[in-house]
Design a protein around this nucleic acid. Structure first.
Lengths: 339, 339
DNA sequence: AGCGTGCGTGAGAGCGCTCTCACGCCCGCC
DNA sequence: GGCGGGCGTGAGAGCGCTCTCACGCACGCT
C-alpha cells in the first residue's frame, strides 16, 4: 500500500468507464484488430480521461515476457564503457527502441559476482533480448544466450560460428581504404600499429592493412606490424619499436585514434614531421582526432547507426521471429592533415 | 507458452524441494530474519540445485514496486549523452546499483512524444526512483517527480528550491581554484569564456571566476566575460571577442575543455603564445585536455564518484526513507602546460 | 425459412510472487 | 502444573494483466 502515490488506475477502471469488459479494453490497448470502432473509441477516451498507463509488471507476468532488452557490457572491461565508442552507439539503440514497448536495461557487470547474477538473470528470461557490447573475443556469453534461445545481437563480428545476430563496421574495408590513401600519397614503407590479437576489430584492421598492400602488389612485411593495447601509451611504444626496426618508415596506419595520438607523440619525439616524413591515419574519428596536432586523418565508423542496426536486428528477431542476421556497415575516410 | 525456453522454476518448486511452504521460501529469498537456520539452509540448497531465480515481474506486481531505477536524459539534449560527462557517471551509478536488487533503465527521450510517454511512465510508478541528468535549468521534470513523491536525484545543483536530492561538483570552488592559479602565475587581466547563462554549471563557474578575483582584491569586469555554448566553435568565437575588447588579456579561464580547445585555436590564430602570452585553464579534464597543444591545465570533476553518489542518495531515499539530500563533490586542479 | 459462418464480446483462469493472518509450538513465568 | 508470549510456519488472498474459450448476434447462403 504505497499510500503516498494514491491508487493508480487499472484496466478494470478503464473498462468500467468505457462500458466494456476488461478483455476488450485490453484488446484496444494492445491494438488488436478484432474490436469495433465504437468500443475502440470509448476505451481510448476512457484512457485519456483517466490518464491510464498499463502496469508493466502485471503485463509481463501475464504475458510471460519482460518487455525489456538488456544492453550488456560484460566483465572484464566494464570500464571500457567510458570509451567514446559507447555513447553514440547507445544513442542509436535508444532511438530505435523509443517508439517500441521495450525498455533498455543497462547491465554493466563490475564484478565477477555481478556477472554471475547477470548471466543467471538473462538466462532465466529476465529480458526478452540482449545486446552485447563486450568486444572481447572468446566471450562465452553470446554463445550461451544463443543456446538458450534468447534473441541476441552482438556488436562486432562474433568470434566464430556462434549463431547470434551481429552488426559490425567494415573494419577490413575501412583499414584497407586508409592504407590505400597512404599508398596514393606515395608512401613506400607503410607500417601499422595493430590492436591486441585477441580482439576482432584489431585483427580485422590489420587484415585490411595487408589486403591493401597485397592489392597494390606489395608483400606485407610482418615486421612492419606492432601490436598494442588500444591505449595511448601502447601506441607510442609500438611506434617507437617500429621506428627502430624501420627508420625509413614513411606511412603509418594506426588501429585507433587514441593509439594514433601516442604514435604522434613517438614520431615527434623521434624528430619526424607529420605528414611530411611520416603520414599517419587513425581509426574511429573520435573528438580526439579533430583536435590532434596535426589533425588526424582517420576512418569513421557510423556508431549511432551501428547501435540502431543492432536494436533493429534484435527487434526483427523479437517481433517477427526473424533468424539472427548480420550487418556490416560502411566506414568513411575522413581526410585531415596527418596524411 | 514460450516453449523454446522450457518451464522456469518457481518459488513453489523451491519450497517443495526444501520441504517448506512458499511463504518460508520467500522469506529466505528476501532475507527475512524470522526463519529457522534449518529452513534457511534447506531453501538455500534447493535454490542452488534448481538454479532458481526470482521472477521480477511477479515480484514487482505483488510487492507494488518495480525494483528498477530510471536514468533519464530528457529532451531537449539527448544527444548530449555523447558528452564525455555521461559514461563515467553512468559507470559510477551502475557500480553502486550492481549489488542491489535494482536494475537501471536507460531512459533517453529522443522525441517529444517519447518524452511524454516517459514522463507518464515515471509518474505512474513505472520505476521506484529516478536519476535525472538533464542539466538544463528549468527542466520541469524533477519538480513534477518530487511532487508525485517519487524519489529523485538530479545531477547538478537543482535550479531553485525544488525538493529533490542532488549531487554536484563544486563548480564554484573549482573555477575559483583555477582562477587563483592564474592569479598566482602573475596574470593581471583574466577573462573567462563562460557557459550559457541558463545552465547552472555555466553560471557557477562564472561565479567562481568572480569570487577568485574579488578574493584577490580585484573587481571582476563584466566585459571580461564572454558567454558561449559549450562547443569548440563557440569557445573560439568568444575568445576572439575577448581578444578584441581586451588585447592585453593574459589569463583565460574557460568553462569547459572543449571550449578551451576553441580558445586555443583563437589564441593561436591571433598569434598569442600559450602560456607565455596568455595562460589558459579549462574545466572537465576530458581526454581532450591531455592531448591538446599545449596540454591543458584544467579542473577535474570526479564524475564516477558523482554517479555513485547519486545512486547512493537515491538508495538512501528508497531503502531508508531518507529525505532528499544534497552532496557537493570537490574538484581537483590538474596542472599541465597551458597555465 | 433454416442453417452455417464469422465477428465482437465477456467471463474467468491463471502468471509467480508478497504479505497478512492465524495457528501451533516451546519457552519461562508464577 | 497452568498460562501467556514469542517465534517459526503455512494457508490463502490478491497484485493487474493476458489470453483462451464460449457465447450471441447479424449476416449470406441454399
Amino acid at each position: 500500500m504505497t499510500a503516498a502515490r494514491g491508487r493508480r488506475c487499472t484496466l478494470e477502471d478503464v473498462a468500467a468507464r468505457a462500458g466494456v469488459s476488461r478483455a476488450t479494453a485490453s484488446r484496444v490497448v494492445n491494438g488488436s484488430p478484432r474490436v469495433s470502432e465504437a468500443a475502440r473509441r470509448a476505451v481510448e477516451a476512457a484512457i485519456d480521461e483517466l490518464g491510464y498507463a498499463p502496469n508493466r509488471a502485471a503485463r509481463s507476468l501475464a504475458a510471460d515476457r519482460s518487455e525489456s532488452i538488456a544492453l550488456v557490457v560484460s566483465e572484464p572491461g566494464v570500464r571500457l564503457f567510458a570509451d567514446p565508442f559507447f555513447a553514440p552507439a547507445t544513442l542509436g539503440v535508444t532511438g530505435v527502441l523509443e517508439p517500441t514497448r521495450y525498455q533498455l536495461v543497462l547491465a554493466l557487470a563490475h564484478t565477477e559476482a555481478g556477472h554471475q547474477r547477470l548471466e543467471r538473470h538473462l538466462l532465466h528470461g529476465g529480458v526478452d533480448g540482449v545486446l552485447v557490447m563486450s568486444g572481447r573475443a572468446g566471450d562465452p556469453l553470446p554463445g550461451r544466450l544463443a543456446e538458450a534461445g534468447i534473441p541476441t545481437v552482438v556488436a562486432g563480428r562474433p568470434p566464430d560460428g556462434v549463431a547470434v545476430g551481429y552488426v559490425d563496421a567494415d573494419n577490413v574495408g575501412g583499414a584497407c581504404r586508409a592504407v590505400r590513401l597512404l599508398i596514393e600519397r606515395g608512401r613506400r614503407r607503410i607500417g601499422t600499429v595493430a590492436g591486441p590479437p585477441d580482439m576482432v576489430p584489431g585483427v580485422d584492421r590489420r587484415t585490411g592493412w595487408e589486403k591493401a598492400l597485397v592489392a597494390a602488389g606489395r608483400a606485407p612485411d610482418p615486421d612492419l606490424v606492432a601490436a598494442a593495447d588500444f591505449t595511448r601509451a601502447g601506441g607510442e611504444a609500438a611506434t617507437r619499436r617500429l621506428l627502430e626496426r624501420h627508420p625509413d618508415l614513411d606511412g603509418l596506419f594506426v588501429a585507433s585514434d587514441l593509439m594514433a595520438l601516442g604514435a604522434l607523440d613517438a614520431l615527434r619525439a623521434a624528430g619526424r614531421r607529420v605528414p611530411d616524413d611520416v603520414a599517419v591515419v587513425g581509426f574511429d574519428d573520435t573528438e580526439l582526432a579533430r583536435s590532434a596536432d596535426p589533425p588526424l586523418t582517420t576512418v569513421r565508423q557510423p556508431l549511432e547507426q551501428l547501435g540502431a542496426a543492432m536494436a533493429q536486428l534484435l527487434l526483427d528477431q523479437l517481433e517477427r521471429g526473424a533468424p539472427p542476421a548480420g550487418v556490416v556497415l560502411d566506414t568513411d575516410l575522413v581526410v585531415r592533415a596527418s596524411a
